[in-house]
Design a protein around this nucleic acid. Structure first.
Lengths: 273, 273
DNA sequence: TGAATAGTGTCTGTGAGACAATATTAT
DNA sequence: ATAATATTGTCTCACAGACACTATTCA
């Protein structure tokens, strides 16, 4: 059939003849938590923190999963994670980054679902509203040994661990293939989403400024270094860190005192000129 | 309503109550082309090469686009680009990497479509079959000046250029925002897909071995260096390049002769041990 | 012989890693 | 006074950039 114009074509077009799928957006909300120390001199121990939601329904009833939801027919794909983020945390204007789109036929036992995952970075201190009843912040700690990664989750009440094997595979789709070896608590393929988000953050910390999305306006270099260390999962040397970070921050005239040790200057993120 | 088990729940589940969208996969097929020199001594000039398809139907009739197609209801998302790649080039087992998922409501005038884009890297010398009638290899040359990128396409018959402005935007979804300033020949949002693929390749060349997917089994370091230069869009210094590449390749006892100059050793990709 | 590419040697500057040393606070 | 963190100084080593030099071929 021949059409004279694009208009004419569109008028005669019947979208229903194509196969349609459901699309969801899952969102990995990351933040940093501080655990108060018993020693008044010691600084609070920082950990990566991820927001999980307890499933009240089948499938995966009573397991934990990332906040997510269906993408509406009249909703831009990127609006969906924003909407869900607002819903869960009441936050807007948050750093949001697309991670990956998963779409194996059997990834959801209910029906065919394509799922685009996003990563959000937030500063926990902005959270004033209480979370919805089923949501909970879990500290995540990565224990890495060779190819094996043990992700340990802890929200103060529940603790569980997920074991994942990483395989380098240059010749195929992705840099790493994640094979979940042990998982009794996380629903769907969310272990992979979480690990790939954490690794994405770890890689990007070196060539972008996205960490500052997790920081309050004023911070000490020690605090910032702790966040780096938690994300990179290793200790950094103070002088080296200060050299690297120096062009990204600016000194303020404020100080943090009261720690039983030399007070430290508060810095602020210095935007590119 | 309460269900006793996951099985029972799934039995009662009605997928039709959720909104459904169409999902397509677009695939950026990249390769390297050589333009023969008139001077017998000079080596062939290499260029990046991308496979485009001429649209025979509305919308965007007569414009060029990336090969693509709908993801079937019973097809894994990652199978779709493989199927399309096979269809267009008759190649299998090709390096394939997911780029990004686009899903603005109005990105396709026909209907709501979510599109996941992939990048494939191929060695053109493997192509024996002729292309389908509407497909054509275009050389792409990037002219970069500050924020502006001018992508020049040339398939020997048609030449056109697409101008894109790059904006760094750390605080929002992606590292760069691409704003298409001039485009009369590429359909949909494919200019962005192409540019982001080329930039992804450029970044990854330094910390992965994916270039070798575009190389034949045996190659000289000069040829490999040319491919690097085309991808990075800048000249490299020979000694530095050889230092960097040394651990990734292994010398063979073959030589390339006949060039009116000193013959060169053929190398081969050395897989990680 | 000369044009062209192949391949090697070496100097230099930059920047990360390592470690040492000093400064300052609350209890 | 002491434990703890804050902050600075400096040495070294690895490595990329730069440039010079030698090697080898074919019309």
């Amino acid at each position: 059939m021949e059409y004279k114009s694009e208009e004419e074509f569109l008028k005669a077009y019947d979208p229903s003849k194509f196969e349609r799928l459901s699309v969801t957006a899952d969102i990995l909300i990351l933040s940093v938590s501080s655990e108060e120390s018993d020693n008044y001199r010691k600084t609070d121990k920082k950990r990566m923190s991820v927001l999980l939601v307890k499933r009240r329904d089948y499938p995966f009833k009573d397991m934990w999963c990332l906040p997510g939801g269906f993408v509406g027919y009249n909703e831009d794909l990127e609006e969906a994670p924003k909407r869900i983020l607002k819903q869960e945390t009441n936050l807007k204007n948050i750093y949001l980054e697309q991670l990956y789109t998963f779409g194996d036929v059997n990834r959801d036992p209910r029906m065919r679902i394509i799922s685009t995952s996003y990563m959000a970075l937030i500063d926990k201190s902005l959270l004033n509203e209480s979370l919805s009843e089923d949501a909970s912040w879990f500290d995540v700690t990565l224990m890495e040994e060779g190819n094996m990664v043990d992700m340990v989750f802890d929200n103060g009440e529940v603790t569980f661990s997920v074991k994942i094997e990483k395989h380098l595979r240059e010749k195929t789709t992705d840099r790493y293939q994640f094979i979940v070896k042990k998982n009794d608590h996380l629903a769907f393929d969310h272990p992979r989403v979480i690990l790939s988000g954490l690794e994405r953050l770890r890689n990007k910390i070196n060539y972008t400024d996205i960490v500052f999305n997790m920081m309050p306006e004023y911070f000490t270099l020690g605090e910032l270094q702790q966040v780096y260390e938690v994300i990179l999962n290793k200790k950094l040397l103070d002088p080296a860190f200060r050299r690297i970070i120096e062009p990204k921050v600016e000194k303020t005239d404020k100080m943090r005192t009261g720690g039983g040790h030399r007070p430290s200057v508060l810095f602020r993120y210095k935007d590119k000129d």
